[in-house]
């Protein structure tokens, strides 16, 4: 029997994507926007483990690509890798610590960095200019913004289950 938690994690994707595509663009700082889906993915990867994180990332990526009209497969690979990475921090001993402390924001930063780097790679951008500058703009800035948002969540809702 499928755990209700698994279904909830999929269902939560849709309202989050709704916010991501309607409200989040209003929060853009010079085209840099946070990725709310990564925050949800990291949460479930930490709580449910690495395999679940990978599969959930794959599912989120598929739904994101198919709904937003992105190149099908690009977000799938990016989010699968992000979920896999976040799943490394799903150790039972440190799970609570990773969820309610600043560690959560750091894990979001790492996963988001991987996600945006892979997405940038699939965008076939001209890298002849300055690869470090492009990495900074395409990967690091959105990752920091996403992590900052996760951090705000941690500050406003300390020691409380997120979902």
């Amino acid at each position: 029997m499928i755990k209700s938690q698994y279904i909830i994690s999929i269902l939560l994707f849709f309202p989050l994507l709704l916010i991501q595509t309607t409200i989040v663009p209003l929060l853009a700082i010079d085209t840099v926007i946070p990725d709310l889906i990564i925050i949800l993915l990291v949460y479930y990867s930490i709580t449910q483990g690495q395999i679940y994180g990978s599969i959930l990332g794959f599912t989120y990526g598929f739904l994101f690509d198919i709904i937003t009209g992105s190149l099908l497969g690009s977000a799938m690979i990016a989010k699968t890798m992000a979920g896999f990475t976040a799943g490394y921090f799903s150790s039972e001993n440190k799970q609570d610590q990773n969820l309610v402390s600043y560690n959560f924001a750091l894990i979001v930063l790492l996963s988001s960095l991987i996600d945006s780097t892979i997405n940038a790679f699939f965008s076939s951008i001209n890298f002849t200019s300055n690869i470090f500058l492009l990495f900074f703009q395409y990967a690091l800035l959105p990752a920091i913004y996403t992590a900052a948002l996760a951090l705000m969540g941690m500050i406003f809702y300390p020691k409380r289950k997120m979902f």
């Binding site: 099908l72 497969g73 896999f84």
Partner: peptide
């Protein structure tokens, strides 16, 4: 190695779908 096996399978499926972007079904 189950985590890595699952990861590799998912990445292979993603790459297959990547090559199917312009298909009618997709």
């Amino acid at each position: 190695f189950k985590e890595y096996i699952v990861l590799v399978i998912l990445l292979i499926v993603s790459l297959i779908l990547l090559s199917q972007n312009s298909s009618q079904g997709i």
